[in-house]
Write a protein that binds this DNA or RNA. Structure first.
Lengths: 195, 195
DNA sequence: TCTTGTCCCTAGCGCTGCTAGAAACGGAGA
DNA sequence: TCTCCGTTTCTAGCAGCGCTAGGGACAAGA
């Protein structure tokens, strides 16, 4: 019994170790550097151990994505609740979102860009993903016009932020004008005369 | 002399053959299926021949990207010039952009998502890229407010379109609400009372 | 016919994600 | 204490990737 629980505890610990190692390696050197061999070295086990915890590399990345998304959701919430007005809340959430993407590019990539087998846009989506989207939704709600589709509006705002981030990070948009673009996006989403 | 020119002609032809094969294979089975071995099979030459024409796989993809971008620019221009009002032009360009992305996902990926070594956002960028951006710019110009940064505004609109497309194509946004989201994006970029 | 220079293919390098089969280890019963 | 058994973990290897070195075939000119 206790032996069994100890083993389970150790297994769970090692699983966390794998996810942490993957995340740190990705944040330090990018996802290209995260190979199963490298990861195995990092945790001081052999490759097949990884596969006794996860179905494959994609599942490890998915675990990192969920973890990262929790942090994103927290940061969005902090930005939103600290804002004075609903207009400011929308802006603050937008800034927090893009700031997260720029500060933690590897996390952003694995959550929003790379192909990981996670369910999105369905009730089965991980709670962290739904939480993050919920933060956007709450920031968008007050500035929505009468009878406007809340979900679609939030998705559109999200798409704007995501587009800014990905085009900039891939070098397709110059970095220096980011703040101006973000301000434009926000101002176009806030109806005139809303505070 | 004539022998020389014949050889050059044949080489140029084979180069086109490579780009076409890469493009068709990507459009048929996605970029994951485009391997140098597969491509060599397709053109009925051995792998090293590819490298006598292009520096590497990335350069082949870049060639496809430029070709695809020319088509995108044409479609954007057609949509823009066919529109009646400036408001309609903006909407038409937006629809044409997202329609292109959905109809030719492999081309869209290689132009705007995958990492290819092409210069962006600089004067050295391929003409096709600048043309496509120019179409967006011309569609955005009439609806810009007095003294607004045209370039940044266009980039922001572009980012909105790009975000919609990428999030949808990766399964992060549901397909069915695309038209509604696109309409929202457009309506938020058009100042009230502009025709 | 022989030489020269170009062209192209075979074979292979080091890497990837992933896995089969053997080895080593830890706990239980004699 | 020794042996057995089940689990855990490792070594070794597969098929595939992008890319390239080196040699062989082939065509043009002497």
């Amino acid at each position: 019994m206790t032996i069994q629980t100890r083993r389970e505890r150790e297994r769970a610990e090692r699983e966390r170790l794998i996810v942490t190692a993957a995340r740190e390696l990705a944040e330090a050197e990018g996802w290209d550097a995260v190979t199963t061999r490298r990861l195995a070295d990092e945790i001081e086990y052999s490759q097949p151990v990884l596969y006794s915890h996860f179905k494959g590399k994609g599942a490890i990345m998915a675990a990192v994505a969920v973890q990262g998304c929790e942090e994103l959701a927290e940061e969005l919430r902090a930005a939103r609740t600290a804002a004075g007005s609903s207009r400011e809340a929308l802006a603050a959430v937008g800034r927090a979102y893009t700031a997260f993407a720029r500060r933690r590019p590897a996390l952003y990539d694995v959550i929003f860009t790379l192909a990981v087998d996670l369910p999105f846009a369905t009730p089965e989506a991980p709670a962290a993903l739904q939480d993050a989207f919920g933060e956007l939704l709450q920031a968008v709600r007050p500035i929505a016009a009468e009878g406007e589709d809340m979900g679609a509006l939030t998705e559109t705002y999200w798409a704007g932020l995501h587009g800014l981030v990905t085009l900039m990070r891939s070098g397709r948009l110059p970095e220096e004008a980011h703040d101006r673009r973000l301000a434009l996006l926000i101002s176009h989403f806030v109806p005139q005369g809303t505070g």
